[in-house]
């Protein structure tokens, strides 16, 4: 279990953690397609033991959105 969202994002999209920031998203990470996006959901859910709703899943455009949704599930995110 890690509280580091950036590390999980980096792992799923096979990029360096330093390349991840709040603005990261499908727009600027090439490997962030719908398939990897759902794998990210899986990884986050398994890691934080939560379930996102379908609107939370479809709403994510950036890493900042992920953090916002995690907070709604009472996950304290390491900024």
């Amino acid at each position: 279990m890690t509280d580091n969202v950036h590390a999980i994002v980096a792992k799923v999209f096979s990029i360096s953690e330093t390349d991840v920031n709040d603005e990261s998203g499908p727009e600027n990470i090439e490997s962030w397609d719908s398939f990897n996006g759902l794998i990210l959901v899986d990884e986050l859910e398994n890691n934080f033991k939560i379930k996102f709703s379908i609107s939370e899943i479809t709403d994510v455009k950036t890493v900042a959105d992920i953090k916002r949704h995690l907070k709604n599930h009472n996950v304290s995110v390491n900024e």
């Binding site: 719908s34 759902l38 996102f52 709703s53 379908i54 899943i57 479809t58």
Partner: peptide, 10 residues
Amino acid sequence: DYRQFHVGDI
């Protein structure tokens, strides 16, 4: 998983 099903016919 209904969510994966609705998002991508998974």
